[in-house]
Write a protein that binds this DNA or RNA. Structure first.
Lengths: 233, 233
DNA sequence: TAGAATAAATATGTAGTACATATGTATTTG
DNA sequence: CAAATACATATGTACTACATATTTATTCTA
């Protein structure tokens, strides 16, 4: 109950505040009681008295859990354990304004990694309708002359790929990483695609997705993202 | 200042509590003032008075930011903006006890995706020392007869791969996903590797990493993880 | 008696005050 | 002038009171 269970970071046990300890105790309590999402938990005063602390301190600890989405409260209805939204918490702090360059770079790389690695899921789950959807996007893309619209459709193409992966978590994860991708793009000097001899377009990717294998697709995607991979050293 | 900036979820504007609004205001305030990590922010009382609310309510809003690791406070030293640890927040709520089966499955898949997609980074950054390190692990692995120790070394092998990727975020991410991987393993019926005709061992992976290409490695890794991929439908 | 209207009870949300505690600053002392 | 001491300050904790939303119980009405 003492050492390892400190939930947050590496705060030395010395300069831990009382609320930190309450948080630990609550964490253990929830775990030991095997609370499931939907289960009600005792009211603030009961918890405070049971732990021998003021309601104020208890509320602050509870606020932490509420912030993380582990419990929810409503007037008079008490509090219930909820299923936390893992990615939402991530999203709340993934702020380019606050993150350092190195972290941003690493998330940038992570996105490339996922883009490459998702191929197997695509081939497991792609349907004819999915491919048709990609086709429509590509058609709009080639037809469009507006630079901004082209960019939007580019994003939509990749977003659709994630959607085809059939994995909502990965799909959301990609969306969450978008701001970072945008932010990083400003630092990269992207040359026009025409300059690239062996550039793989969305059209080619779709063709591979239709007729090729997951390996083919990865090779194609790597070429498609070549300009980004070149930035990595 | 009103609608879109609600930080957390999708809570309708109607049943928003005052603290929710304070949180929104603070969020905008931090953003507009362009606070950077390390910058001090006004003290609780000043913020509370400036916003016309009690210190109690202000403290609760501030607690949320503290919980997310966006601000830090110390007695008498006031509060400062901090660089949030994106993955730590994720780690705090990634609890198999609370997550539903579908989400777990999706994170399980995400891990496979990353394992496949990380190949390019490996070939960009691998050093002779890295390969030597893998070799040592494999030697211990083949020498060991203890089942538990073998498992531990298996994990260490993959962890080392992430380390070689040179991406701390990805490395930590993988560690965070470990509990889920463990949890899911229980549901899978893993047959022994000897039964697999074309199983790719760690030894073979290392050989590929030495002599092959990123694409070779991905193909090898896919075979190595075949049993897990087979579970996906 | 059914059902609506009303009153009471309840748990969280907000406010205000007081004091504890740690930390930084100023002052005194040797 | 350094060390010790006193003081000021901002966050941490406690206690009390009341607001508010929601449920439960009660009363009134057709």
């Amino acid at each position: 109950m003492i050492q390892d269970s400190k939930i947050s970071g590496i705060k030395p046990i010395e300069n831990m505040t009382q609320v930190d300890r309450i948080e630990m105790n609550l964490h253990d309590y929830f775990r030991n009681e095997n609370f499931q999402p939907g289960d009600a938990i005792p009211k603030e005063l009961e918890l405070a008295e049971a732990m021998g602390v003021s309601r104020t301190a208890m509320r602050e600890a509870l606020t932490r859990f509420k912030t993380l989405g582990i419990i929810e409260s409503r007037k008079n209805r008490g509090m219930v354990i909820t299923q936390p939204d893992v990615l939402q918490n991530m999203n709340r702090v993934l702020n380019p304004q606050l993150l350092d360059q190195e972290t941003m770079q690493e998330f940038f790389e992570l996105r490339l990694v996922i883009e490459m690695g998702v191929a197997d899921l695509l081939y497991l789950r792609k349907t004819e309708a999915d491919l048709k959807k990609l086709e429509v996007i590509i058609e709009k893309e080639t037809a469009s002359t507006n630079k901004l619209e082209k960019l939007k459709l580019d994003i939509e193409f990749h977003a659709t790929l994630y959607q085809i992966s059939g994995n909502k978590t990965i799909e959301r994860f990609q969306k969450i990483l978008m701001p970072i991708f945008d932010y990083m793009k400003n630092d990269l000097h992207i040359r026009s695609q025409e300059e690239d001899e062996n550039y793989v377009s969305h059209k080619v990717l779709l063709k591979i997705l239709r007729e090729g294998t997951a390996e083919d697709f990865r090779l194609g995607m790597h070429k498609h993202l070549m300009q980004y991979f070149e930035q990595i050293k």
